[in-house]
Amino acid sequence: MILIGTVSVSWYLAVGASLFVLGAVCMATKRNLLGVLMGVELVLNGANMNFIAFGSKVLRPEGSLGLDGQLIALFVIVLAAAEAAVALAIALNFYNNHNTVDVDRANELNG
């Protein structure tokens, strides 16, 4: 196994990148509003992974971001919660008005 003895920030970044891409693809392909929302969560999570990796003193004894990484990760988590609340309120309104959660049907603003 290539990883033996060689876990570095890069590998954390790779996981973060994978989660980010998975989330982005999820956002692009899902037609269900809640599915899109879950994609957003994955994307934010992937980004968070980078902050944690760069902030980790275990992984980067020298030159780590230190507390800043964790603090920004915390802010991301809190903002993600806020984002989920608003998005769900929008979803609810959308469902009340259109009786569906298919985002492709949300085309009323087309010119």
Binding site: Y12, M49, I52, A53, G55, V58, L59, Q70, L74, I77
Partner: peptide, 11 residues
């Protein structure tokens, strides 16, 4: 779990 591994317990 990965966060825990990286030493960010609180997060």
């Amino acid at each position: 779990g990965l966060f825990f591994l990286a030493g960010a317990e609180f997060v």
